[in-house]
Design a protein around this nucleic acid. Structure first.
Lengths: 218, 218
DNA sequence: GGGTTAACATGAGCCAGACTCATACATTTG
DNA sequence: CAAATGTATGAGTCTGGCTCATGTTAACCC
């Protein structure tokens, strides 16, 4: 699995102990996100639960956003790993199956991964409204980049699946599809803790319908 | 125009002076959102720019979220007003024209209305991840309700347009469409200050394509 | 007018939470 | 063993959301 999460940490943990600590902090961050949400999440509480002094917390994470961003990136890696693994298992006969697979994996992760329903890598704090243009290290950019990564990954898979790229606009189309799916699934998980099944179905519907205009029926 | 914004304010301004003050605070809030984004926006600065003491600010707005929520609701009213006005002007021959009209109006508002590209009524702070279930006065609920209002409004228009409701699932479908469009347009305005035209076009594409599965071609 | 009362306005200050930094500790190196 | 270099710590700073005691205006009554 490629290491996507470069550049999030203030200092990279070198020893085993530090590494475990960072993992613990991320775990507790995820659990706290489920319990109280992003706004009410405090760095002190994360540190307390992870049994790490606050000073050490700030040795590794630049700030609260950085913490959540690091978590989102860890989740992104997990997602890409799962998708890749699943693809190795099954033989897909057409792209609609891939849509279902991707969405099912995403939903499964939302259900199983603490904090993931609150901040997945798609939206990571994009929303509370970073200004349209701002410093390079904004979450905003991270969120965009993340969906670019997912879309790109899906493009690779799609191209492999179809044999050759069909539509030169495929990149943008996939990006839009990912963004839209992300939003609808977010909604599904806001409606019900395990995700409203009807909305999840509707999400697949939406994506399939949209992509069918750009991909061959086969 | 119906007054949607009930219940946002701590106290409703009665006299002319208070009313102007509240408007000024909302205006400055909008401008600040464009400048620094939601997180960096401070109630002190809003009050300072509106030339209102901080105490007075809190006489009217319950908190920072309440301020932004009030702004979002004011924008929602404006949007519904504009849509209604436009519909009175033009004669629509089919529902695809309505999709274009609604999206165009939305885009026009994003361009013209300060702060609207940062927090429109669709997402209003839903994202930074309130916990899935939490107190009644959460922004989250507000955001959901707002899109419900828009979807409902569009349903009314659609039903009028078509003569009779076609699909019993129309409500959910429209809701999903609004949510997806919202996300893609948000993206378009993150990419370019005035909204990436190609993404805007793609948004219309997405919605039309999706709805065409549920609405008659005519 | 004068006096009483109720509504409104004000900003110094409280408090919580993000983040720092001086100090203590450990670990490596000559 | 001493110096140097890295690492750990939590008391403390600072900023920003929000309050509340006090001052001010307006409304009302005699």
């Amino acid at each position: 699995m490629t290491n996507v999460s470069g550049g999030t940490l203030r200092r990279r943990p070198a020893q085993r102990r530090s590494l475990e600590r960072v993992e613990r902090m991320l775990d507790e961050c995820a659990r706290l996100l489920d319990e109280v949400g992003y706004e009410a999440l405090t760095t002190k509480e994360v540190a307390r639960r992870a049994e790490v002094p606050i000073g050490t917390f700030y040795q590794f994470f630049p700030d609260k956003q950085g913490l959540v961003r690091a978590l989102a990136l860890r989740n992104l890696e997990a997602f890409l790993g799962r998708i890749t693994a699943r693809l190795a298992e099954v033989r897909l006969s057409n792209w609609t199956e891939m849509v279902d697979l991707a969405i099912d994996e995403f939903v499964a992760m939302k259900r199983a991964t603490p904090g993931f329903a609150v901040v997945d890598f798609g939206e990571v704090l994009a929303a509370p409204g970073g200004p349209v243009v701002q410093g390079t290290e904004r979450m905003l950019d991270a969120a965009l980049e993340n969906n670019v990564i997912v879309a790109d990954r899906l493009r690779t898979i799609t191209v492999e699946l179809l044999g050759a790229p069909i539509d030169p606009e495929l990149d943008r189309v996939l990006f839009v599809a990912v963004e839209a799916a992300d939003a609808v699934l977010k909604l599904a998980f806001r409606s019900l803790p395990d995700g409203d099944p009807e909305l999840i179905a509707e999400c697949k519907h939406l994506v399939r319908r949209y992509l069918s205009a750009h991909l061959p029926q086969e």
